[in-house]
Nucleic acid binder design. Sequence first.
DNA 1: CCGCTATAGTTTCAAAAGAAACCATATTAC
DNA 2: GTAATATGGTTTCTTTTGAAACTATAGCGG
Lengths: 149, 149
Amino acid sequence: MDDKLSLQQFLPYRCNSLAQRISVSLARIYVQKFGITVPEWRTLVALSEYGELQSKQIAAHTSMDKVRVSRAVATMTDKGLLSRRPCDRDSRAAFLTLTEAGLELYRRIVPEALAWEERLLAPLSEAEQATLFALLDKLDLRLSELSSD
Amino acid sequence: MDDKLSLQQFLPYRCNSLAQRISVSLARIYVQKFGITVPEWRTLVALSEYGELQSKQIAAHTSMDKVRVSRAVATMTDKGLLSRRPCDRDSRAAFLTLTEAGLELYRRIVPEALAWEERLLAPLSEAEQATLFALLDKLDLRLSELSSD
DNA sequence: CCGCTATAGTTTCAAAAGAAACCATATTAC
DNA sequence: GTAATATGGTTTCTTTTGAAACTATAGCGG
């Protein structure tokens, strides 16, 4: 057994470095231009997409752990981007929604984010883009299988 | 313009969360089982692939910045995994190579890493795997274009 | 009811990462 | 030659992150 491995051909590396480069590049938009972090951005999107969520649900929708969500929610509350409504059934939890300011921020960022994504994906045909997402789906699914056993 | 954005359909998010999941899963091998970090692992691979490199070149081959490389190199030197040979032409730099212990570690990890990757990619046909890598290549290339202007 | 376990969310602590400052040496311009 | 600038690499400082501990409440089994 005399295996050779090339980083360029190793999916974990490729995926990681691509994600990293994308993050750095995109961060210029929401960090520098709008002053929010990645966890805040994800929270923003999740809340705009689902309306009213508990922290736990935000975590589920954004693949973040509860600590990260907790911090994002805290700073966003400070900034007045979201508001908490106590949950009667369970006083530990709270329902979170975007405030008008939060929605407004969302409306300003989204077009830029989508435009950026479009520029990134420009060299791929529609079919290739669909294929890419399908492949990512398969890998996500596969990871779930692998971690469950 | 009343845009909507879904995280699930947003490539930066998808790529990031997939990379994260892959990392966590794979880390079980080289972190827990072999006691090295990701930067060390990448350095190991780069050196085994190219033989003798300066830190700067390791950085280029592994998409890590020089600080990360510096730290990885330092701890690997401490562990006796690599050795430095001073460079006559430039006394600031040094050529790095894997020691026998480093090579030995590499030979023990690689089969497991490749086996893990194979299990991850198992649901994809050969053709799909090739397509995936080709798409990643295109995106990498595109990012270079975007950052240069 | 009452103890036990599970859960929502926060806080604390330690590890990892990057930015910027830094040191030493090379290189370039004059 | 020498001043100015650039470069290889390390160190320092700050920020980000996650694991584990913690708080407070819920739900369950008896």
